[in-house]
């Protein structure tokens, strides 16, 4: 390297570099563009009532996507998000219907979901098995086990505490459910962990370069375990939010939750290769999916088209990520 190039380095990166370095800018533009298109084509889209509906529809996938983001940041992938969440709804519902205290039932269900995360983490970090296979296996085991527990069918769960997350409050014309607030609080908490703490920085370092992380003295395996543990806990909270939306425990529910949560994360600009991205992007990604589905429904378009457009968005997002990696 010559002295001339060293001297010409600027202290502050260019605007373009900063935009490329802030992965949530692109998704935000996409979200705004969709909102403008839908608002122009249908005046009902921007009604406060409709915005509340979009948020409510985003709650479960939005919450699951928090855990998925953590896992993907470590260069893993979690195919058991939906199954672990359903585990939570079935166990909580079953216990309450058997007459157990609802707080205990929900708490126990969340604990079990955390345990499922811990099991996945132990296999991935302890035995160094690929996350894809481990979570696929857990998906299969849980799906079968849950159908056995619930004897095949869905059952209603009528308990005010379990349904509490679906209760609404009015904030300046907006109808918000407690579930929406819990989701946003979780986003805030995990954002803080990822961006302001040592724990979060190590998540990025491990996803970025696990060998370098090990060599600088980060206990990589223990850290991975904590990531899957926290993800499992978040899926458990999502189970509570799911019971608030639909008071029904269904072993066949959430079959698209895996793909939807991965979609939210990827559209939100988090790299499937790990170490890059963040939670703000994921929240925007989950909202993009919600807005798209809602807007197309309002426009009277066949739901199949929603999946098609979502699919195209995922591929574009991954292609953009790959291109920006090659640039370096």
């Amino acid at each position: 390297m010559s002295t001339a190039t060293i001297a010409s380095q600027q202290d502050t990166p260019s605007l373009k570099a900063r935009l490329l370095g802030t992965p949530s800018v692109g998704p935000l533009l996409v979200l705004v563009a969709f909102c403008i298109i839908f608002a122009l084509t249908n005046p009902r889209f921007l009604a406060t009532q409709n915005i509340s509906i979009i948020l409510q529809q985003t709650v479960i996938i939005g919450t699951l996507a928090i855990g998925q983001t953590l896992v993907i940041l470590t260069a893993g992938i979690d195919l058991a998000v939906g199954a672990i969440c359903v585990l939570g709804t079935i166990v909580a519902g079953k216990l309450v219907n058997l007459g157990y205290d609802p707080v205990f039932s929900m708490g126990f269900a969340i604990l079990l979901c955390t345990g499922a995360g811990l099991a996945a983490g132990s296999l991935i970090a302890g035995l160094r098995l690929p996350p894809f296979i481990v979570t696929l296996g857990i998906l299969g085991i849980l799906t079968a086990a849950l159908r056995l527990i619930s004897e095949g069918g869905a059952f209603p769960v009528r308990d005010p505490f379990l349904a509490w997350t679906g209760n609404t409050m009015k904030v300046g014309g907006f109808v918000l459910t407690y579930g929406i607030l819990i989701m946003l609080a979780l986003y805030g908490f995990v954002w803080y962990l990822l961006n302001q703490t040592k724990w979060g920085r190590h998540v990025y370092a491990i996803g970025n370069n696990p060998e370098a992380a090990r060599l600088v003295g980060i206990p990589v395996r223990r850290h991975l375990l904590s990531v899957y543990l926290l993800a499992g806990f978040i899926y458990g909270i999502a189970a509570w939010l799911a019971l608030g939306r639909i008071p029904n425990a269904d072993p066949n529910a959430m079959q698209t939750a895996n793909l939807d949560s991965i979609t939210a994360v990827v559209i939100g600009g988090t790299s499937l290769f790990g170490g890059r991205g963040g939670l703000i992007g994921t929240l925007i990604g989950a909202l993009i999916v919600g807005v798209l589905r809602n807007g197309l429904t309002l426009a009277g378009i066949d739901p199949l088209w929603q999946d098609l457009v979502t699919g195209i968005l995922v591929i574009i997002a991954v292609a953009l990520d790959q291109m920006s990696r090659r640039r370096n």
């Binding site: 920085r201 190590h202 370092a205 370069n209 060998e211 370098a212 992380a213 060599l215 600088v216």
Partner: peptide, 22 residues
């Protein structure tokens, strides 16, 4: 100082200097 440098590419210089000992 490893031959492979063992740096985390996605974080800045300061974060790399203190990686593991923030």
């Amino acid at each position: 100082i490893y031959q492979t440098l063992a740096v985390a590419d996605n974080v800045d210089a300061a974060a790399n200097l203190y990686l593991g000992r923030e």
